[in-house]
Amino acid sequence: MTKSARLAIAGNADLVMVRQQVRVVAVEAGLSLIDQTKVVTAASELARNALIHAGGGAVDIAIVDDGRRRGLRLSFSDDGPGIPDLDRALTDGYTTAGGLGLGLGGSRRLVDEFDVTSATGKGTTVTVTKWAR
């Protein structure tokens, strides 16, 4: 990793900051404009999920290099209630907050790598990676 940052997600203003910082680091990582837009959209959804469902959390933003390519890795974590049924939560249209139910599944489609771990009562961590092409 050549660059990293940790941002708190505690309110709506933090959602704006997350989007802005992800865009800046995506440019530094060499992502195309289309891939920048995809990863910023995914970041916005995941940050909003942390705020709405867990009351807040944090995101770690890092440029990564696997020896063949550079990319951007985001890891969203919270200490919220967790996701009781992860398979259902990843299904488009499923919502517990009255939204469109596209947050997790939509974010997964926008990135190259997607991993989520969650434990009821212990919180959730979602890690996504978008590689430069």
Rank of each mutant, 00 (worst) to 15 (best):
E113L: 14
T124H: 00
T120L: 12
L104H: 02
T37Y: 10
G123S: 07
G106S: 04
A132I: 10
R73Q: 15
G105R: 08
V25R: 06
D35N: 12
V116S: 02
D79N: 15
T120K: 07
I83Q: 00
E28D: 15
E28I: 05
G103P: 00
G123K: 08
T124E: 04
L33A: 14
M17I: 14
V27C: 03
G55T: 10
D35H: 10
S32T: 15
S44L: 07
A5F: 14
R133K: 14
L90G: 06
L33P: 08
D87G: 11
L51M: 00
R88T: 01
E28R: 10
I52V: 14
V18Q: 09
R23A: 14
D92A: 11
K130S: 01
R70L: 11
S75T: 15
T117E: 15
L31Q: 06
A29C: 10
G93S: 09
H53L: 08
R108G: 01
T129Y: 11
L102T: 08
L33Q: 14
L46H: 06
T96W: 06
G80H: 03
A26N: 03
V24D: 15
A50G: 12
V128G: 05
T120N: 05
D87Y: 09
V111N: 03
I61F: 02
D66E: 10
E113I: 08
R68D: 12
A26C: 10
Q20F: 07
L100A: 03
L74T: 05
W131V: 04
L100G: 01
R109M: 09
R19V: 06
I63E: 15
I63P: 02
N49Q: 07
K122W: 03
D35T: 09
V64P: 01
D14E: 09
I83H: 02
A5G: 02
P81M: 05
S107F: 00
L51V: 00
L51K: 02
T37P: 01
Y94E: 09
A8K: 08
H53Q: 07
A26R: 04
D60I: 13
N12W: 03
G106C: 09
V126D: 04
S107A: 08
D65A: 12
L31R: 11
V25D: 11
T95I: 05
G105D: 01
R133G: 06
A29M: 09
G67L: 15
L102R: 11
G99W: 14
I9F: 04
I83T: 01
L86R: 02
D79A: 06
A29K: 10
L31P: 09
T37Q: 15
K3A: 15
A54S: 12
R69N: 12
M1D: 14
A26M: 01
V18T: 13
